[in-house]
Design a binder for these strands. Structure first.
Length: 146
DNA sequence: GCCAACGTTGGC
DNA sequence: GCCAACGTTGGC
């Protein structure tokens, strides 16, 4: 069971939209490093949802309900036979009891190596277990069920 | 609205 | 295959 973080611009597709939709394909990722993370997702994986723009905070979590598949808008596979423009389906988990802001993350030494801080332009990234635990404790988000 | 950081493109 | 030019992202 792995954990990831996905960014979204709330004006385009917010965490609340995912809650409303109950389930949604996570599309539009074209950056290769982000796509590598998307392609490695498995059903049941936990995904923290981060809002860019004015909020700049982890606002909730979600879970992978369908593993990586080809974006129907941009079909094609990599040399390894994986979906080139990978899409996963997410279903919403609970909202964060306390959103975890970028400012708080930057101020916390435990996040010094976090890709969210180190590469601000990356839109999908893995979250190591230790940091996932810290994020859950700071946001009140529940651990995924095994 | 600006710009730094990074990715991508295309000419050579 | 290098690298300059350009485009994009996202924090400030």
């Amino acid at each position: 069971m792995a954990t990831f973080l996905c960014k979204t611009e709330p004006g385009e597709y917010a965490f609340d939209d995912l809650v409303r939709d109950k389930r949604a394909p996570w599309t539009g990722v074209s950056n290769n490093q982000a796509l590598i993370s998307l392609r490695s997702m498995k059903v049941g994986d936990e995904v923290f949802i981060y809002h860019t723009g004015d909020q700049k905070a982890i606002v909730g979590s979600a879970f992978v309900v369908r593993g990586p598949y080809e974006d129907p808008e941009q079909p094609g596979v990599t040399a390894e036979g994986l979906p080139r423009f990978a899409v996963v389906d997410l279903k919403p988990g609970p909202p964060a009891r306390t959103p975890l802001t970028l400012g708080a993350i930057k101020a916390d030494k435990r996040f010094a190596s976090f890709l969210l801080v180190k590469n601000s332009r990356l839109s999908v990234m893995p979250v190591v277990d230790d940091l996932a635990k810290v994020i859950r404790s700071l946001t009140g988000l529940p651990a995924p069920k095994a």
